[in-house]
Design a protein around this nucleic acid. Structure first.
Length: 462
RNA sequence: GAUCCCAUCGUCUAGUCCGGUUAGGACAUCGCCCUUUCACGGCGGUAACACGGGUUCGAAUCCCGUUGGGAUCACCA
């Protein structure tokens, strides 16, 4: 079996498309099949090289690989022309000389009359002389496929039996005047020629499936199996919009999501393993994935849950890995972090691992190791207490006498201060915390001590 | 407007095919515990079968209708 991922390079890769790619990939991996990657760039106006590059980058980032491609439709124009001639020879297509304006007017007319907005097929009734005359006059023309039946039925892999009334759709354009095929035409030819057996795609193209099946049959190609996934929506079931949050894979990456977390989350959006499993490694998802368990109803994208899932994956990271993934975000705020000793960097990573949901948040916690915060009201209150003053004296004394600020030696150091000051519990710990960080909350103090060391500690306590 | 699709906690979903569950899990939320901070973690609570008719001893589950939402009707894919 063979599946394919065939986005059009008219922008960056959207999560919806990414999920479609993921489901195709999962199906292929589960079945031991292959995946074809193809860029559908027949819309010359909107396709860009930049978009092609970014889609390739993003799909790799998500962790999907393809077995064949990437193929570019713009490099296959001759193939489409050949196929057009085949259909022309069979009399299955005709030239259409209607202008965009005429077609628009026709649609408007139909709309007013509450008729289906379909093409009338008037150019199919042109005789030889009229056609010759139009061509002689230099009129541009497209090719339309003649719809040759009334009903189309097929079985959808996720939605079951489908039935469409073809009287409602008009003869459709398969080749533009500029020699570029339309989507419905090129997609069929490519999928057939590339040997695609299972087409898993968004529900938005469910209505054009009958057209494509007619084309398969007109060519005498074997019709593949179709499966249409429900769409991912934003808040309130409305289409996912940028104001809801990130929509492109590159945006998720930039916001500090781990590809493994997004992978896991996307897999669960419309597919369920039927038990309570949620955090699952890739191979388990592959092993358990099944089109039969794919939901027909649309799912809203829940950023909160994704964030939680991301935190779960971050928690599983070793300090080394977390450093590797989050360093770029930390460097944006603290370029000097680059020069910090490796063991201290790893200490910081250890301290922040359970505290962050997103890689970008790492920088917020690194703050504790680079500065003393301005005191807020609660901290100021603590600073005013007698306990604080006593603890502070002893803290300074103890630090001055100490040379070992390692994690291991933190407890004895605190014990010493406790003994000398006669304070314990909150009075002791909060005072130390405020004196050294300026905040009443934060990472474990042993990490702070170990990373910033003697001089900085004394400077902070002042 | 026409056609098609969809409908279980606020959200993602299990259960629906093959009627019998205290309708389960997760996120979020609330409370408690852990932690001499916060976070992580643990335990618990609130919370759903869109509505109306059937069929049946019994309906989230089967049938019909209503309502709501979405998609599509391009020389975009």
């Amino acid at each position: 079996m063979k599946v394919r991922f065939a986005p059009s390079p008219t922008g960056s890769l959207h999560v919806g498309n990414a999920r479609t790619a993921l489901f195709n990939w999962l199906l292929a991996k589960n079945q031991g099949g292959k995946m074809v990657f193809r860029l559908e760039d027949t819309d010359v106006e909107r396709s860009t090289d930049e978009s092609k590059a970014s889609i390739i980058r993003d799909i790799k980032w998500l962790g999907l690989q393809w077995d064949e491609g990437p193929f570019l439709q713009s490099e296959r124009l001759d193939i489409y022309k050949e196929h057009l001639h085949k259909l022309e020879a069979k009399g299955a297509v005709y030239k259409c000389f209607c202008t965009t304006e005429e077609l628009e007017a026709e649609r408007e007319e139909n709309k007013k009359k509450n008729l289906p907005m379909k093409y009338s097929g008037k150019c199919s009734r042109l005789n030889k002389e009229e056609i010759a005359k139009n061509i002689a006059e230099g009129k541009e023309f497209s090719y339309r496929f003649k719809i040759d039946r009334e009903i189309m039925e097929f079985k959808d892999l996720v939605r079951g039996d489908m039935k469409f009334d073809l009287n409602l759709i008009g003869d459709f354009v398969i080749m533009r005047p500029n020699g570029y095929p339309t989507y419905n035409f090129s997609v069929v030819i490519d999928d057939a020629l590339m040997g695609v057996t299972h087409i898993i795609r968004g529900e938005d193209i469910l209505p054009s499936t009958p057209k494509q099946i007619m084309l398969y049959e007109a060519f005498g190609y074997k019709t593949p199996q179709f499966g249409h996934l429900s769409l991912i929506s934003g808040k309130g079931g409305k289409p996912l919009h940028k104001r809801d949050g990130a929509t492109s894979l590159s945006a998720f990456k930039g916001q500090g999501y781990l590809p493994e977390a997004l992978f896991n989350f996307l897999a669960l959006l419309g597919w369920s393993p039927k038990d309570d499993s949620e955090i699952m490694p890739k191979d388990e998802i592959i092993r358990r994935f099944n089109l039969k368990d794919v939901s027909k109803s649309p799912a809203q994208f829940d950023y909160e849950k994704l964030k939680w899932m991301n935190s779960q994956y971050i928690n599983k990271l070793t300090p080394e890995k977390l450093l590797e993934f989050s360093e770029e975000f930390i460097l944006q705020r603290y370029p000097q972090f680059k020069d910090l000793e490796m063991d201290k960097k790893l200490l910081i990573m250890k301290a922040i691992t359970p505290r962050i949901d997103l890689l970008t948040e790492a920088a917020d916690w690194v703050d504790y190791f680079y500065k003393k915060f301005e005191l807020d009201d609660v901290a100021k209150e603590i600073e005013e207490t007698e306990d604080y003053k006593i603890v502070k004296e002893e803290l300074i004394k103890a630090i001055k006498e100490e040379t070992d600020f390692s994690i291991e030696n933190h407890k004895p150091l605190i014990k010493k201060i406790q003994k000398a000051s006669g304070k314990k519990g909150k009075a002791l710990f909060m005072s130390i915390r405020v004196a050294t960080t300026g905040r009443t909350h934060g990472p474990d103090l042993n990490y702070v001590f170990a990373v910033i060391g003697k001089d900085e500690l004394l400077k902070r306590i002042g």
